[in-house]
Design a protein around this nucleic acid. Structure first.
Length: 103
DNA sequence: TCCTTGACGGAGA
DNA sequence: ATCTCCGCCAAGG
């Protein structure tokens, strides 16, 4: 099945990440029933419209880093939003042991 | 059609 | 902690 067919499942999982927490791409993939397809999560998020209400900013990579170019507007947007939710970055990364969402 | 590049991740060195 | 290498595929050149 093509990726696009899985966008809904992926978005639904992301929609459940509570404020103040983050989830990794791989984690979202697994929860969406797509173990091993972390890249598809990135693809699905990239396909979201700019005015989406899906909290895409709560998804970071397994190292706790924002997976976008650090010089991009999207990176700053994600960083800002997480900060607004009380999720603080330390040395360019988020402490997963502290912020990762445990469903 | 082949090759490269991704909003990735886990294992091994 | 850092760096490759290798799965995973899709999209673009």
């Amino acid at each position: 099945m093509p990726v696009i067919d899985h966008y809904p499942a992926i978005w639904q999982v992301v929609a459940k990440i509570p404020s103040g927490h983050v989830a990794s791409y791989g984690q979202v993939a697994r929860l969406a029933g797509l173990p091993g397809y972390a890249r598809w999560v990135g693809r699905a998020l990239n396909a979201l419209p700019e005015d989406t209400r899906i909290p895409w900013h709560r998804v970071v990579n397994s190292a706790g880093r924002i997976a976008l170019p650090s010089d991009s507007a999207a990176y700053r947007q994600q960083h800002y939003r997480l900060q607004q939710e009380g999720v603080e970055q330390r040395n360019d990364r988020y402490d997963l042991a502290r912020y990762q969402w445990c469903p």
